[in-house]
Amino acid sequence: MNGFWLQLDVDVLDASVMPAVDSPDPGGLLPNQLRELLLALAPYAVGASITVFDPDLDPTGLYASRLTELITDGLGELGTRVTRHRAAG
């Protein structure tokens, strides 16, 4: 099987748009930038994991909702272009 694993640490987003992470830093990606990156990479990935989001820092659920939408959009085509090879037998 060809492809790669996609690891998304949510703190790659700029702190101004995603403060609900353990170590928010300025200078990260904006949501549209991350969405475009995920749209380009996800079809060739065999799987993905998302980490670093801290729900304790999101008492209203606003950032979780935004993140869910971003991930759903960006990873919607996950694995659709992965080439699977049959074992010779």
Rank of each mutant, 00 (worst) to 15 (best):
V12H: 00
G61Y: 04
I50K: 06
R81T: 07
I50P: 01
V17C: 09
V17P: 00
I71R: 09
V46D: 03
A20E: 01
L57R: 13
V17M: 07
D73F: 11
L37M: 09
P19S: 13
A48E: 00
L30E: 10
Q33Y: 02
F53H: 05
E69P: 02
L62H: 14
D73I: 12
L41I: 01
Q33W: 03
T72W: 15
E36G: 04
G79N: 05
D54N: 15
D58R: 05
D14N: 07
I50W: 03
R66M: 11
A15Q: 04
G76E: 06
Q7K: 05
V21C: 01
G47T: 06
R35Y: 03
M18F: 02
A42V: 04
D22Q: 12
V17G: 02
P55C: 12
L30T: 01
M1I: 09
L78E: 02
Q7Y: 10
L8H: 01
A87S: 15
P24A: 14
D56K: 15
Q33L: 04
R86D: 14
V10N: 01
G74V: 04
D58E: 08
A42H: 03
T72G: 09
D22S: 12
W5F: 12
V46F: 01
A42G: 08
G79T: 11
L34A: 01
D56H: 12
T80I: 09
V17T: 05
G3F: 00
A15K: 04
G47P: 00
L34D: 03
V52Q: 14
L29C: 08
V82A: 03
L8D: 02
L30A: 09
L13D: 05
R66E: 12
Q7A: 11
E69W: 15
S49Q: 10
I71C: 13
D58C: 06
Y44T: 08
L41P: 01
V46G: 08
R86C: 11
G28T: 08
L75I: 05
G28C: 08
A40Y: 13
I71W: 07
R35W: 05
S16Q: 14
F4R: 09
D58G: 09
Y63N: 07
E69I: 08
S65N: 10
D22P: 00
T60S: 15
I50M: 06
R84Y: 14
D54A: 15
L67S: 04
H85T: 12
L41E: 00
D22I: 06
L38Q: 05
D58P: 02
R66C: 05
T72S: 12
D25K: 13
V12S: 09
L78R: 07
P24V: 12
R86T: 12
